[in-house]
């Protein structure tokens, strides 16, 4: 049976919804239909996917305006004559068609302080009770589909909040580490409040609603984190102690240095100064840069920019990124 679909096509410069009538068979999901479109009418339709089993979190999209995984949206959930509209997730910049630039999330992941192993506990000696690990395990079910980030109204249509706000995905990461039975840091909540923008969240639970893993993001992570932050902040003594401690514990505003001695120890004997800064072009044994005259179609030194370039270049074609200070 043919069904009507509207799929957004375009890129950063703009685009629009295109109409398609596509064959749909019993038992199929929306991602099956995207694949059929690619195999038939639109071979270059861009869409991320991997496992097609709801386990990798790649095929995030908005289906009739709702943030969903394409592989987890059964066609049988729509009305017989319903038009199905598929658009890219809105909170992140479009790259092409249904593919968006989700690097925001990877940047926030980097800023969240990592697990700090308990000092003096050797590998193999970790002891934890099932009941204690289960609380963190709930958050470790996260497949990083970023639908919670996409739906969160703090940053959906509010790019200006992005620098100061990590989003639900990283609140549950903070909660996970906070509840980890052996994590050595005790300032996860304070960190979430001070550096992740936990205070922006006014617990509308949109993130919990869209989570394909049914993680209770708001109830089990955000609210407990907020409550405990509040507890500590309003106890004047604890507050004072924290206030004093936090300065030297955190070091910088954005990220405290990781304290993982057991790990760096492996490389203890080997100098890590081999990390190189950007290098110039290689120089031959004679001290000259090599000029590949014999293999080139042109005589003389090649243009370092390629022979088919004319200048000036249109700025949108230049792949140069001005170096930015790492945040």
């Amino acid at each position: 049976m043919k069904r009507h679909f509207r799929v957004w096509r375009g890129d950063a410069s703009g685009g629009d919804l295109r109409d398609f009538d596509v064959e749909v068979n019993e038992g199929e999901v929306v991602l099956d239909i995207i694949h059929r479109l690619q195999a038939t009418e639109t071979p270059d339709l861009a869409c991320r996917w991997n496992c097609k089993a709801g386990k990798c979190g790649s095929c995030s999209m908005e289906i009739n305006g709702k943030p969903r995984l394409g592989c987890m949206t059964r066609m049988s959930t729509f009305e017989e004559n319903e038009t199905i509209t598929i658009t890219p997730i809105r909170t992140f910049p479009v790259i092409r068609d249904l593919v968006t630039d989700v690097s925001f999330n990877y940047e926030k992941a980097r800023e969240t302080p990592a697990f700090a192993p308990p000092p003096g506990v050797a590998p193999g000696e970790y002891r934890m009770q099932q009941i204690d690990v289960e609380r963190s395990q709930e958050f470790r079910k996260c497949i990083e589909c970023f639908l919670c980030q996409n739906t969160c109204h703090v940053i959906r249509d509010h790019d200006e909040n992005k620098p100061a706000f990590s989003g639900p995905r990283y609140f549950i990461r903070a909660a996970e580490l906070d509840m980890h039975p052996l994590d050595d840091r005790s300032d996860r909540k304070e960190y979430a409040q001070a550096s992740q923008g936990l205070g922006f969240c006014n617990i509308t639970k949109c993130c919990t609603e869209v989570c394909p893993e049914h993680i209770k993001i708001t109830d089990n992570a955000i609210i407990p984190m907020k409550e405990r932050v509040v507890d500590r902040r309003y106890d004047p003594l604890v507050w004072l102690g924290r206030k004093i401690l936090r300065r030297d514990q955190l070091g910088s505003d954005n990220m405290a240095p990781s304290t993982t001695p057991g790990v760096a120890g492996t490389s203890g004997g080997i100098p890590s100064s081999r990390a190189r800064r950007p290098e110039g072009a290689p120089v031959g044994p004679d001290g000259h840069m090599d000029i590949a005259e014999l293999v080139a179609p042109l005589q003389g030194g090649l243009s370092p920019f390629g022979e088919d370039m004319t200048f000036p270049l249109p700025p949108e074609e230049v792949t140069y990124h001005h170096p930015e200070k790492d945040r």
């Binding site: 990592a114 192993p117 590998p123 970790y126 994590d183 790990v263």
Partner: peptide, 11 residues
């Protein structure tokens, strides 16, 4: 070693 990286296996 994975536990020292933060993995949480069932117990």
């Amino acid at each position: 070693e994975l536990e020292t990286y933060g993995a949480l296996f069932d117990r």
